[in-house]
Design a protein around this nucleic acid. Sequence first.
DNA 1: ATAGCTGCAAATGCTTTGCAAGGCC
DNA 2: GGCCTTGCAAAGCATTTGCAGCTAT
Lengths: 142, 142
Amino acid sequence: MRKKMRDNTNESAVARLREAGLRPTRQRNELADLLFKEGNRHLTAETLHAEAVGKGIRVSLATVYNTLHQFTHAGLLRQVMVDATRSYFDTNTIEHHHFYYEDEGLLADIPGTEMVAVDNVPNAPAGTKVSRVDVVVRLKRD
Amino acid sequence: MRKKMRDNTNESAVARLREAGLRPTRQRNELADLLFKEGNRHLTAETLHAEAVGKGIRVSLATVYNTLHQFTHAGLLRQVMVDATRSYFDTNTIEHHHFYYEDEGLLADIPGTEMVAVDNVPNAPAGTKVSRVDVVVRLKRD
DNA sequence: ATAGCTGCAAATGCTTTGCAAGGCC
DNA sequence: GGCCTTGCAAAGCATTTGCAGCTAT
């Protein structure tokens, strides 16, 4: 009655993993579903783990960490640094920028973000190249 | 022969601390000297502690952490988030932006930084105001 | 079969904290 | 003197790692 493991698994997630050279295991498939099924998300390892467990997915926190890093290396996720204590991961890997709600510890895309422009960025110093440009607009309660 | 403790201490550091409502203790004076005597600096607690110890200043790492945070709250320092594992402090509290050398874990001001402009930043969402805008140009070895 | 994953628990690394001793006003 | 500060060591947290058992191919 449960011969196939992939029945309730999003095919695109599996394909995505294969392309990235990652074995589509149950945990990775299920996490990928959570991550990529609904628009852009911003989450921490704890957050994702809690959500997974809440939905009945059996996965350890260590695996969530591993998976997030593997996905990041594979280019499926982007890691955003806004808080000294937590690491945020963003499912939107296209160049874009963020609002960070300092009081809530919440990260969000800047709406219409393609309009934000950073001008006059100097050339990268000799021997280096720009890896990426991060813009974070920090917000606090009014 | 050592009645006065403030002999070799930078007067401006003491004044700075008094204005901030912080008692000018030996440790705070000496750390302030290291921090503010020579232009803009970017350092971590470890870095500063090592430097202090190297110069014969007796101070514990815990006090360095406390002092960095007190200075930050007093507006003498600014905390910059670029690395999930380390907290950087910047002695330049004026709005400006950074290069981050990912390979070396080194943070630096963007030269001529006043020329970098961030355009079309949307208004802060209702109930919030912009605390600050951080721009980090991440560099990697070529 | 076997190389790659997962989970647990222990380890790590940065940072914070409790509290007794010491310093500043 | 009284309150603030320091230092040490212990505690705290998020994250990583070692390794035995499990899984995808």
